[in-house]
Design a protein around this nucleic acid. Structure first.
Length: 326
DNA sequence: GAGCCGTGGTA
DNA sequence: TTACCAAGGCT
């Protein structure tokens, strides 16, 4: 390579890194709690979406001890709208594990981090490197894309993952592994983007094999995706005076543990159709017909005027908006 | 290993 | 509008 890719990226990052709320500035030491919280929130989620949730969580629960003592329903409600709700369930379990089994201090070892709920290979490596200065090979979607382009890896995903990790291992320095990982992720997020990489601004373009081939956006190679099935649900808006019936969904699976509208009919006679909403999940598309009635049943009764504070997942927030307007 | 698991932004 | 995509983890 014409330039040392690792050194060039570290130099670029020192000057052009993004200022992010969970990122230590200047000579500050990264707070493992904030690094962990941000990494969990950032899983498959954009920086822009995470920012307000990170601010709200750190204001309300400034330490892992505070989060460990939090009411579970309050945490689930605070997470509402961010998606992938298993992350919130694991967040609580992880905070309690850190307090109970690690004296309230996050472990610095990658292997110990990997045992925590909700912490997988990527997150364990990221926390070890960023919050504890350990050398760890951090591989996320950005890293896979950047590395696939740097080396023009032609093997399709996900089969190429081991090769991409080995290449990242080769690039990762002994010191500054955390900065290097964040440099790779910043590069992937801002310059080496999926659809239209801005090679003119890239600090390592001269060493990029995909750039040399002329089609950097062709990497990483991916297999075609299958179409999403369409599903139909019915949502029930049961009113009792100024209140509406909500139910707690089962602890696992789709929207697990979240407050929701019933999707099985409460035993009420006179249902009236008030509208329908469309929503797209990761693996299926949904049309939900919304029925309304007056009556009584078992569950949590919530004031209709304060439905926005209930912490409903977006699909049910849409349905509630349709029903409340009818 | 492959399917499950949300949401909002972008082209 | 449709399709793709984002600092993945769990089973």
């Amino acid at each position: 390579m014409p330039v040392d890719t690792t050194s060039a990226l570290l130099s670029w990052y020192a000057v052009d890194k993004r200022a992010l709320p969970w990122r230590a500035s200047g000579s500050e030491t990264a707070d493992p709690y904030r690094v962990w919280l941000s990494e969990i929130m950032l899983q498959q989620t954009t920086v822009a979406a995470v920012k307000p949730y990170f601010a709200a969580f750190t204001a309300r629960w400034p330490t892992v001890e505070a989060l460990a003592e939090a009411d579970e329903a309050a945490v689930m409600s605070a997470w509402a709208g961010l998606g992938y709700y298993a992350r919130a369930r694991n967040l609580i379990a992880c905070a309690r594990t850190v307090v109970r089994e690690h004296g309230g201090e996050f472990p610095g070892d990658e292997a110990a981090l990997l045992k925590l709920p909700g912490v997988g290979a990527y997150t364990a490596a990221a926390i070890a490197a960023i919050a504890f200065g350990r050398r760890a090979v951090v591989v996320d979607g950005n890293v896979e894309r950047v590395v696939a382009r740097l080396f023009a890896v032609s093997e399709p995903m996900p089969g190429a993952k081991p090769k991409l990790r080995a290449l990242m291992d080769r690039l990762t320095p002994e010191r500054d592994a955390g900065d290097f990982a964040q440099a790779m992720m910043d590069l992937g997020a801002t310059i080496c983007t999926p659809r239209s990489p801005d090679c003119g601004r890239c600090p390592v373009a001269s060493g990029c094999a995909a750039r040399a081939e002329g089609r950097p956006e062709a990497y990483p190679v991916k297999a075609p995706k299958t179409a999403k099935p369409q599903r139909e649900w019915t949502g029930y808006w049961l009113r009792r005076g100024g209140e509406v019936l909500l139910v707690r969904r089962p602890p696992r699976g789709l929207l697990g543990g979240m407050l929701a509208l019933p999707v099985e009919p409460p035993a009420v006679a006179e249902w009236r159709e008030v509208g329908a909403i469309d929503h797209v999940f990761t693996h299926f598309a949904l049309t939900m017909t919304v029925l309304s009635a007056e009556g009584d049943a078992e569950g949590e009764w919530w004031p209709v005027e304060r439905i926005a504070e209930a912490g409903l997942p977006t699909v049910f927030a849409k349905a509630a908006a349709v029903a409340a307007a009818a």
